[in-house]
Design a protein around this nucleic acid. Structure first.
Lengths: 124, 124
DNA sequence: TATTTGTGCAAGCATTTGCTTGCGCAAAAC
DNA sequence: GTTTTGCGCAAGCAAATGCTTGCACAAATA
């Protein structure tokens, strides 16, 4: 695990163990060993997951003596919610609307063949 | 890339390229080459990403002759929204509520030391 | 019919990821 | 003061990931 690579919140929640950690400490802040007690892997593995979550801003760690209490920073998950939100309108629409779009596709038949449809994206 | 490994929707959207593909084809269905034209990597790399998205149910592919049109299946993203939703209440609360929780933590001081706090989870 | 286009299969490679184990340091408990 | 506990550092390893390149097949086009 490369310590210099920062991950975004999407990469942080991609792992099921990390999602479970988030759920766990959202109920109440826990120290690291208390979190680790709920999993079947080594304490160090959980420590590494928590490090990833802390680095991308999903959890906050407060040290008290030798204990490090992890608590959720839920606002970071707004980034995920914000990304998903535009698609919500689509999955809440009726299916026949999607059919209509596909029918329009058949009559036009040009999107795949039009080589000028690139987004305005600068080359590397 | 192991073809037999199925990924869940969280793993599918962890990659920024795949999120961009999802955004692109949500505007209108595109064939694979039209999608690839928006990126600076090989067409085959895009093909592999689209395969991942199809396998976890995020996009639907409809073949017309040799063209394969990719369209979004937004309902699958409801899984992400459903997971994020319980945290929304937390990030929409006022910050002092979080402070209160932390103050309670200081007075109790037992969560980390209580070895009986494991979830009801069967051992492997 | 020949050529072009769309696109998947496969191999190869470098990087990233997830985990274990051993060790060591600091703080709490005895 | 000694022992126990919490927990990060580091190395090592296997698996997963993302990408490129070459090739081949099917459908569309000329």
């Amino acid at each position: 695990m490369h310590p210099m690579t920062r991950r975004d919140v999407f990469q942080a929640i991609a792992d099921p163990t990390r999602r479970e950690i988030i759920t766990l400490i959202s109920r109440q802040p826990l120290n690291l060993n208390a979190v680790a007690g709920n999993f079947d892997m080594s304490r160090q593995a959980i420590s590494l997951h928590i490090k990833i979550l802390r680095e991308c801003g999903l959890i906050l760690i407060q040290q008290e003596g030798r204990d490090r209490y992890c608590s959720i920073q839920p606002k970071k998950l707004a980034e995920v919610a914000d990304w998903v939100e535009p698609f919500r309108n689509m999955w809440e629409e009726r299916f026949d609307r999607v059919d209509l779009i596909l029918k329009n596709l058949k009559t036009k038949k040009m999107v795949g063949k039009n080589k000028q449809n690139k987004l305005n994206k600068p080359k590397k």
